[in-house]
Design a protein around this nucleic acid. Structure first.
Length: 569
RNA sequence: CGGGGCGUAGCGCAGCCCGGCAGCGCGCCUGCUUUGGGAGCAGGAAGUCCCCGGUUCAAAUCCGGGCGCCCCGACCA
């Protein structure tokens, strides 16, 4: 492709409304153009890269036995009512009406559509297993689109859905997809890690996310320094310091704690560890007031709490709601609290003789003990993993924290959707049973955005070879010199004949502009033909984008294609 | 949905307080010179100052309402 003909220009200045490096580079390199918040046009180079990603995905999906289909973006709302997810998605779901006022939605994902499809075509166990996938546009009216292609409202993703006769079959299908995912990310040249994930509104049992590590990532991850445990913080288990006191329960005692309303103040005032106190936190879950008790040095993981409560809407209670429930904020404890649902973290039931609120302003209780002094309606693990916590899977590993961008997610759905849609098959002995489903997604555009976010330097993008729009950026300098330009033209033809994809900068621009653009655009290899390269014969200079300036080599033009292939390995 | 910021030429911005010819840099077009790290000279084109309303002799500027975009948080299969 000749750059003089190419649609899409590079920008000299950073766009003002881009914050992350990846977003800035996408705009400056002229890869995408924003149309509305979280809605983008993809220009030729971005599209080439996305097609390469799609092809890698397609090859691995096909190799894993999945079959490609295409399901509609626009769907009748009834499908979503049937699964109960119209409500679960809420305002994230784009709604519209057709000319006859029939309510429709724009698909944010396709579990409903694929389950409906499968139930119409699968009759018997003989039709299973199957795995259907598509690469399709999805729409979600995200509350806050951000960071370029990372969080958008209209996006391309690959989604695959497996259907099996039972859990064992699902396990096999899931493992196959996991293997395919590793192949895909490896082939894309991306260093992705898998973490245990919360399955959120999807429900289901096992779930793993594939994360590309990046400081600007939206997700916080933990991994163990001693074993292979890795998880999204939303779900992470952790080993915190043991309760300081595990002795006999001592006599309950009321003490004055003037104006002590936080755990930190209380611990300092009494000269005790925060872990010797109990903390009370208040939430409203689906309009029900929830009293949460947890050891003072720990925080509540709201995702875990929401799951423990069976999903639905969860938020912190307002001061007014706390007061209305008859609770003295700052001096609250579960001791003597009735008529309110009390949920405790496991930590609150371990250890002895805690300091906790007296439920009277400016007073606390010493020697509070679970069961003797208070009871809980639910005891669950809702503690948030923190820096300094240990691993629960091994004895001496510590949790290491990092951030990442979710580029893939796999779930074992089980029969949630098949039951809702009566997507049944007939077993060998003639009974009807729901199919066991799994679903497996990879965001194509997000993968491109994440790749750039994680692979760039101060000058621009550094594309992995397999997903770069072109293999080589051929730069021709000294356009006035006939020998040079004819040598460049010749090299352009030769590289293409050798099966390489070439972006040829034939523009009448200065060397500085051409080199800067080559760095910005980030093709893996740069070839330069100039007076300098031709000083001792018909030579070209080759330089890897990932290498520094003096890593360039000079090769005869007739060998350049061969050398280029070698360098791109 | 809560908090903050912004909206002026294709892009980046100044002008707005304190009302009075709509500006700067880059880019774009023409010509000449230039060409290994964002060149020089000369000439030129390009504006719904986000929208609607109000105040005023006069509004990019002041007032009211609306819309859009960005950031933090909430949310996020």
């Amino acid at each position: 492709m000749r750059m003089s003909q190419m649609f899409g220009k590079t920008l000299r200045d950073d766009p003002s409304d881009a914050d992350t490096a990846g977003h800035r580079l996408l705009i400056r390199a002229g890869l995408v153009a924003q149309v509305a918040a979280g809605v983008y046009s993809y220009l030729p180079m971005a599209l080439r890269s996305m097609r390469k990603i799609e092809n890698i995905i397609r090859e691995e999906m096909n190799a894993a036995g999945a079959q490609e289909v295409l399901m509609p973006v626009i769907q009748p709302v009834e499908l979503w009512q049937q699964s109960g997810r119209e409500e679960a998605f809420g305002s994230t779901l784009f709604h519209l009406h057709d000319r006859r006022e029939r309510p429709m939605v724009l698909g944010p994902t396709h579990e409903e559509a694929v389950t409906d499809l499968a139930r119409r075509h699968v009759r018997s166990y003989r039709d299973l297993p199957i795995n259907l996938y598509q690469i399709q546009t999805k729409l979600r009216d995200e509350a806050r689109p951000r960071a370029g292609l990372i969080r958008v409202r209209e996006f391309h993703m690959k989604d695959a859905y497996s259907f099996d006769v039972d859990q064992a079959g699902l396990d096999v299908a899931y493992d196959k997809m996991v293997q395919a995912y590793w192949n895909i990310f490896r082939r894309c040249g991306l260093d992705v890690v898998a973490v245990e994930a919360d399955s959120g509104a999807m429900g289901g049992s096992d779930s793993q996310e594939y994360m590309l590590l990046a400081d600007t990532g939206e997700d916080e991850l933990v991994n163990c320094t001693g074993c292979s445990y890795a998880a999204n913080v939303e779900r992470a288990l952790s080993r915190y310091t043991p309760a300081p006191d595990t002795g006999e329960a001592l006599d309950l005692e009321t003490i004055d704690t003037p104006n002590m309303t936080t755990i930190a103040e209380l611990a300092e005032f009494l000269n005790i560890e925060e872990s010797q106190t109990l903390k009370a936190v208040f939430y409203v879950h689906n309009d029900e007031f929830i009293f949460v008790a947890i050891r003072g040095d720990l925080d509540v993981n709201e995702v875990k709490l929401a799951n423990a409560l069976g999903g639905g809407e969860l938020r912190l209670a307002t001061d007014q709601e706390v007061a209305a429930a008859g609770i003295v904020a700052g001096s609250a404890s579960p001791v003597g609290i009735e008529n309110v649902r009390k949920v405790g973290d496991i930590s609150a039931t371990q250890g002895a003789n805690y300091v906790a609120g007296a439920n009277v302003a400016h007073k606390h209780l010493r020697n509070v003990n679970y069961k003797r002094d208070f009871d809980l309606d639910d005891v669950v693990d809702i503690a948030k993993a923190e820096e300094g916590h240990g691993c629960t899977r091994c004895d001496d590993g510590m949790l290491n924290f990092s951030r990442g961008i979710e580029v893939g997610h796999v779930f074992k759905l089980g029969t949630k959707f098949s039951e809702a849609f009566a997507a049944n098959y007939v077993t060998q002995d003639g009974n009807e049973k729901p199919m066991f489903m799994g679903c497996y997604g990879i965001g194509v555009g997000r993968l491109l955005g994440a790749a750039i976010e994680s692979s760039h330097d101060d000058d621009g993008i550094i594309f992995p070879v397999s997903i770069a729009p072109y293999d080589i950026h051929l730069v021709s300098l000294n356009p006035g010199d006939e020998d040079i330009s004819s040598a460049a033209e010749e090299l352009y033809e030769q590289l293409m004949s050798a099966g390489l994809e070439v972006l040829y900068d034939d523009r009448d621009e200065s060397a500085g502009i051409k080199f800067s653009d080559a760095d910005l655009l980030g093709m893996p290899l740069r070839a330069t033909v100039s007076r300098r390269s031709m000083r001792d014969g018909r030579n070209a200079e080759l330089k890897l984008r990932s290498g520094d300036r003096d890593s360039a080599i000079i090769v005869p033009i007739e060998n350049a294609a061969q050398e280029a292939h070698r360098l791109l390995q």
